[in-house]
């Protein structure tokens, strides 16, 4: 099994699905020629492989999504790339009022089989370019929301998303594009709506997704040296939310920390914590804790940016605090 990057895994998924289904196209800003294909290189080379099927669009996110919705209604399976999650806000009406509503509001007469690929993330780009909107998308009935953490999950979930008959918001992450992991050569799919253990342990359950899965794994290695074994549940899909593994894990560890990158207030961690305590209150030995991003518009300065975001050390600190508490 070859080790490839998250970026390459996504590209392989796109290539395989384009080979399989001629109605799959890629539309987005600078997906053809710029830097070889895609602001972050995900579509590099695909325009040459699939003439006429990978097209640059104007910088008009509301139209990228809206034209994608219309094309999906008309029988295609467009994969629309929004360069970063920050720019999805320009298209929020199209995503929430149109993509998400069509099927239910029109009583099943219209389907919208499209994928909206976009990365969360940061990188010294300040407040308007360093955000995480996982919770916003996960809030909306009618959307399916996927946020893979590994190259393996990224490939299998993107292929499933393209084949899905509903609009899927596929949340990548700028800091994950270069990360590596094993991906089999043969074809495989990963179902939407199924979470996954990324590490087994007996002491504390960490429920997380996306980049924070990787930070949680780093934290787990540090904690293991101290004799603390954390179990990591990677949600992989944020809507519908599969809490079955988290629940199973809580029965065993009796302690839960939800780790998310986004802002804490009204974040997805709040929903997860509330749901878990509804379902497993009697199993809990401690209040469910949350690790999240600090609630400030992201500053540019190196030290301030780092202070704003959660990293492995914040997870370690949260586990320490939980293990030291006596209830």
């Amino acid at each position: 099994m070859a080790e490839i990057t998250y970026r390459e895994a996504l590209k392989r998924a796109l290539r395989e699905e384009m080979q399989r289904d001629p109605t799959v196209v890629i539309w987005g800003e600078d997906v053809v020629a710029y830097a070889g294909g895609g602001a972050y290189g995900v579509t590099s080379g695909l325009a040459k492989e699939f003439p006429g099927r990978v097209r640059d669009t104007p910088i008009a996110e509301e139209a990228i999504i809206g034209v994608g919705i219309g094309a999906a209604m008309g029988g295609m399976r467009p994969v629309c790339e929004i360069m970063t999650v920050n720019f999805t806000l320009v298209a929020w009406d199209q995503i929430v009022n149109h993509a998400a509503k069509q099927s239910h509001m029109f009583n099943g007469q219209i389907k919208v089989p499209m994928v909206i690929r976009t990365p969360n993330g940061h990188g010294r780009t300040a407040a308007t370019h360093s955000q995480n909107f996982d919770a916003w998308f996960a809030h909306v009935p009618g959307l399916k929301v996927v946020a893979p953490s590994t190259p393996y999950d990224a490939k299998g979930l993107l292929k499933t998303s393209i084949r899905d008959d509903d609009p899927v918001v596929f949340l990548e992450h700028l800091q994950l594009y270069g990360t590596r992991g094993e991906v089999p050569d043969e074809e495989y799919l990963i179902p939407i709506g199924v979470s996954d253990y990324k590490r087994r342990g007996k002491d504390v359950t960490i429920v997380t997704w996306g980049r924070m899965t990787m930070e949680s794994l780093k934290a787990a290695r540090i904690l293991a040296e101290e004799g603390i074994e954390v179990e990591i549940v990677d949600l992989r899909t944020l809507r519908p939310l599969d809490l079955s593994l988290a629940l199973e894990s809580v029965h065993k560890t009796n302690r839960v920390i939800v780790v998310e990158e986004g802002w804490r207030t009204a974040g997805l961690g709040a929903e997860i914590a509330a749901s878990l305590q509804e379902m497993a209150f009697n199993d809990l030995d401690a209040p469910i804790a949350r690790v999240a991003g600090l609630e400030v518009p992201m500053p540019y300065a190196r030290n301030l940016e780092r202070a704003t975001l959660p990293f492995a050390e914040d997870v370690v600190a949260a586990v320490h605090a939980m293990m030291q508490q006596q209830y």
Binding site: K111, K144, P191, G193, P240, D242
Partner: peptide, 13 residues
Amino acid sequence: YIYQQPVRNMQIA
């Protein structure tokens, strides 16, 4: 019809 294609674990959503 909230979704055209139900997925696994929808009931937990």
